[in-house]
């Protein structure tokens, strides 16, 4: 029954919880940073593995390109850039799976989290932003640097483009977070949420352009993909970074990213409220 008061709290304006959220974000960032330094062997191993798989993946794309100058705007340099970016983004967006919330639900920890004096979704968002920031700085940037050392890549050429990439990355995290949060909430309904989660992540690889650049797919597949939020979490970042998306199209893309982000975030709120209500009725 204790959850009742919290149910109301979740929907409240988050501004009064801004300070604790920022604190939390900072704590998480510092902690993951320390962990990263401690497990240096793991970090190096991760880097080597990431690099190796990147080369395997790009070999396939280059072979498809063959003797042609470019396919759908992707030449050699763009393909290297695509590969580097998608490999760099894996941990930033937790592409291979994220089950923290699910585990908290199944272990019952969630009850204490719901009682904490801040919005529940914001609490998890703060955690995730902290995690993602460290992943981007310590892994993403290093991977990008490593790949640019070995391969000819395309990089943003103007301050405006760099800004667009940064904004797009942030919005992508919001979309990714919303999607992952919703997927994890299935744990409230099903004891087999992990299987559901695995489905979800697999589907997202396909539609986000992680397995292949979306432009390589037949037109009808691309049309379906762009009806989902997934391309806006990954594929568009590549296209902005390589300069394929510019001008009004770029603005439009950023707006759609923002809309998907907000939509998924709101959906997370609403679904959570239903989930908690269910929890209260069932008595946990």
């Amino acid at each position: 029954m204790t959850f009742h008061s919290t149910t109301g709290r979740i929907a409240r304006c988050p501004s009064q919880y801004l300070y604790p959220t920022m604190r939390l974000f900072w704590e998480f960032t510092v902690r993951s940073f320390q962990r990263h330094l401690t497990y240096r062997a793991a970090a190096v191993a991760g880097l080597v593995t990431n690099f190796f798989f990147g080369i395997l993946r790009v070999s396939v794309l280059l072979a498809i390109l063959g003797e042609q100058e470019s396919i759908e705007g992707y030449g050699r340099a763009e393909l290297f850039t695509y590969m580097a970016l998608t490999q760099a983004i894996i941990t930033y967006l937790s592409l291979f799976g994220w089950y923290d919330l699910m585990n908290a639900v199944h272990s019952g920890e969630i009850a204490t989290d719901l009682l904490k004096p801040m919005g529940f979704v914001s609490f998890w968002l703060a955690r995730d932003v902290g995690r993602a920031a460290v992943a981007l700085l310590l892994r993403g940037v290093v991977i990008m640097a490593l790949y640019s050392l070995f391969f000819d890549m395309v990089h943003p050429t103007s301050v405006a483009q760099v800004t667009a990439v940064a904004v797009s990355l942030i919005l992508a995290l919001l979309i990714s977070f919303g999607f992952r949060f919703l997927l994890n909430l299935s744990a409230f309904w099903s004891p087999n949420a992990r299987g559901i989660g695995r489905f979800g992540f697999t589907i997202s690889w396909f539609f986000s352009g992680f397995l292949m650049p979306l432009a390589f797919f037949p037109a009808w597949v691309q049309q379906i993909a762009y009806l989902t939020p997934f391309p806006y979490a990954l594929n568009v970042i590549v296209e902005i970074y390589t300069g394929q998306l510019t001008g009004p199209a770029l603005w439009q893309t950023l707006c759609i990213q923002l809309l998907w982000g907000l939509l998924l975030f709101t959906l997370a709120h609403v679904t959570l409220r239903t989930a908690v209500k269910r929890l209260v009725i069932l008595g946990g």
Binding site: I71, P191, I196, M212, F217
Partner: peptide, 28 residues
């Protein structure tokens, strides 16, 4: 249920990965 779901999901991963290769190779 968990078993069925997990079995399906190992199949779906292969299906999606091979599917994406097939779509692209078929096109080019």
């Amino acid at each position: 249920t968990a078993f069925v779901l997990e079995t399906l999901s190992t199949a779906v991963i292969v299906a999606v990965e091979f599917g994406s290769v097939a779509l692209v190779l078929n096109r080019f």
